Simulated scan of single mutants.
Amino acid sequence: MNFPEPLVEGRLIRRYKRFLADVRLPDGTEVTAHCPNTGSMLGCQPDDARVWLSRSNNPKRKLQYTWELVEAVPGQLACINTARPNGQARSAVESGTVAELAGYPSVRSEVKYGEEKSRIDLLLSGHEQQPDAWVEVKNVTLAEDAQGFFPDAVTTRGQKHLRELMAQVASGDRAVLFFVVNHTGIEAVRPADHIDPTYGKLLREAADAGVEVIAYRAHLCGGDGEPSGVMTLTESVPVILEL
């Protein structure tokens, strides 16, 4: 999947009230952009960071700009828009990039399921040899020494999703936790036990119960380190669950 229009570069002034970010454009104009991320964004909002915004021409929108990318550290980009990973994962599955999930002719999004009243990000069905696959997608942007960590804040919602996935395995279906690695500096993914030890413990329990855990990294920049306008998932990266 690609951005439909070229992104607008700016410099981050501040993020506040979770969903707002003030950005200085190259001509000196300051704009307020929508920040589509409910997490802590740990490591993804350094002072005066280069950021890239998408621009909407919808006159009914209160905020014209949406924050999409940030240069988390020099030469490394991260996509902070958590509305993007589901589409990235779906495109990768439908294109055959995700070998683990190949062979499913039907892909549906936001299907209600589970005793805890959840919505699965992707439901894959119609495989000739495999049961339906329930796929929960998570965005990974927290990087430390080339390691990606999830979550970046305590997540009771994420814990609920793991319980729901385990229940699907118990019922005879496949359940998959799909980490979309939206940070170009990440080489492997680990549970963030130092941030949410309960999530890390539950993730290992889920893997032991048969929940499949995979991770694919997005292509966010070209050889010059600048945004490429492309958000395609291109390669798998290892998920390390050992303590």
Rank of each mutant, 00 (worst) to 15 (best):
Ser109Cys: 08
Trp67Cys: 02
His161Lys: 12
Gln130Val: 08
Asp224Asn: 12
Ile240Leu: 15
Gln45Pro: 04
Trp67Ala: 03
Trp52Cys: 06
Met231Phe: 03
Cys221Asn: 13
Glu94Thr: 08
Asp121Cys: 04
Gln159Ser: 07
Glu128Thr: 10
Phe3Trp: 12
Pro4Leu: 11
Thr38Val: 13
Ser91Cys: 06
Val51Lys: 00
Met166His: 06
Leu165Gly: 01
Pro74Leu: 03
Tyr65Arg: 05
Ala146Phe: 08
Ala78Glu: 05
Asp48Thr: 00
Gln159Arg: 15
Ala218Gly: 09
Asp48Asn: 07
Arg108Glu: 13
Arg50Pro: 11
Glu164Ala: 14
Pro131Leu: 04
Asp48Met: 00
Trp134Tyr: 14
Glu128Arg: 12
Glu94Leu: 07
Pro59His: 06
Ser106Met: 05
Ser95Gln: 11
Lys160Ala: 12
Ala78Arg: 02
Ala133Gly: 00
Glu242Pro: 08
Glu5Asn: 08
Arg84Gln: 09
Ala167Arg: 13
Gly10Ile: 01
Glu144Ile: 14
Thr234Trp: 07
Ser56Val: 08
Gln76Cys: 15
Ala192Gln: 03
Arg15Ala: 13
Ser109Arg: 09
Val154Glu: 15
Glu226Lys: 10
Val211Asn: 00
Gly158Asp: 02
Thr232Glu: 14
Ser54Pro: 07
Tyr216Asp: 06
Val154Arg: 15
Leu101Tyr: 08
Thr234Cys: 04
Glu115Val: 07
Arg119Trp: 05
Val140Gly: 10
Lys117Arg: 14
Asn58Asp: 15
Tyr216Val: 02
Leu69Arg: 03
Glu100Gln: 13
Thr29Met: 10
